[in-house]
Design a protein around this nucleic acid. Structure first.
Lengths: 237, 237
DNA sequence: AGTTTCACGTGTCAAACGGACACTTTTGTT
DNA sequence: AACAAAAGTGTCCGTTTGACACGTGAAACT
């Protein structure tokens, strides 16, 4: 690039208005029976004391995915959780305290991996999906959007497993889908469908917490899934 | 809000780094047989003379959707085209001339509505989807992503009609789907499926450009579609 | 020791759907 | 009058989906 074009470029870019770029994460968890949402009681201004999604600002040396992972780590102490971009919230007046553009993400978290001390530090609390308190700004809209996306996505991608312990039973998995989709499923049909994909490894162990007979534990075979995907396979529940 | 909290808030926000926020649009069109992409030959710095997606910067008084619509209008002279957010491109080094965060959109345009003079002003040109020239920055990645999204989306949403004239024939519609999906479809099965949804109004007129016999023209019944959607209907091709 | 209880685990049938497949119709051209 | 070229139509079969009911295993209780 010549010195002249470089000058023109600097001029062009410098005419533009810069914006504060933030992100907010809708964090889903599953707790035996219920789909839950992790919210924080803001211990800082603005909106101190109100319930809110966890969020943060983009920094100079990272991309938005890294920022989302960092913010998530900050709250939960965990890294590498399932994260998916939702959409950009950019209305000029969405944050009444100043113009902030926010990228919404949703994350899926295994609640058995949670670090309760860490969560308490941020005044974080799990809420049942149908008992969400009033939220700041447009966070409620973000939650609605995330839930809609999760409901669509879980039918075609094996993301449910991100919400369960590494070992889980078929009835547990079914309850998860029922909680996400908000419908009851037939257990024979559910079992037939999920097992027919042959992506679950049956273990010898049983989980006896929920019945005297106990239910066999399974593990999701990620390697096999990745292999099948390469061959044109589609996951479907 | 008290004066004290306001000050805290200003302090909090002002510690953050602002970024240049842009958008780029992948514009699809359909031309009887081929799926096409509208690109511009940049007549301005940076990267003057190279092929690129149409883009622009977010302005202070608009949200990102308005910005996308504005940018699209600037190029094509058209407003209200189908627009869908893809994802944010935010790698620190994605634009080698400075840090710019870009939201990618894809748009669907009826090529029979195009204003050729307007397009020439911007050195815009249609390219077949498999003959795309080298593009600046990460625009090629955006195009790939848009194409993947379009392929998924067109199976479950009636967006194909955004690429066809208001009146179209079934064979035309089929060619469109074949062009998007890159596969051949059986015309009996296609016709059966598309007509079984009863969303197409058959007109008395025929389009005789492609055969002596001529093919009946149809119109997509948007009102009926919206009504059915409210009743839980799902579009599927 | 026998009985109860509770959730786990299993198979069948009918209807709907999806995909393969070939011939007739229409009408302009020669 | 014959031809060419694309439009338009129906059937059959295999697969998938959804509805549906009973036996099993193991702890808890008597």
């Amino acid at each position: 690039m010549t010195r002249e074009t470089y000058l023109t470029m600097v001029e062009y870019y410098s005419q533009q208005t810069p914006f504060l770029l933030a992100l907010d994460v809708i964090i889903f968890g599953f707790d035996e029976e219920e789909l839950k949402l992790l919210l924080i009681k803001r211990g800082f201004e603005p909106r101190k004391g109100q319930w809110s999604l966890m969020g943060g600002f983009l920094k100079e040396d990272e991309d938005m995915e890294q920022a989302a992972d960092r913010v998530l780590h900050q709250l939960t102490g965990l890294s590498g959780l399932y994260l998916e971009q939702l959409r950009l919230y950019s209305k000029p007046d969405r944050d009444s305290d100043g113009r902030v553009i926010s990228m919404a993400y949703y994350a899926l978290m295994k609640t058995d991996h949670q670090d309760s001390e860490q969560l308490e530090k941020h005044n974080a609390q799990w809420f049942k999906i149908d008992e969400i308190p009033e939220l700041v700004f447009d966070h409620r809209e973000m939650v609605n959007h995330a839930l809609a996306r999760l409901r669509r996505r879980c039918k075609t991608q094996p993301i449910g497993f991100e919400l369960l312990p590494d070992k889980f039973t078929i009835p547990q998995l079914q309850k998860l889908y029922e909680a996400i989709l908000g419908v009851e499923l037939d257990k024979r049909n559910f079992r037939k469908k999920i097992l027919s994909m042959e992506l679950l490894q049956k273990l010898e162990e049983k989980d006896k917490r929920s019945s005297r007979k106990g239910a066999f534990l399974y593990r999701f075979d990620k390697e096999k899934y990745d292999r099948l995907i390469g061959e044109g396979f589609s996951f479907a529940v």
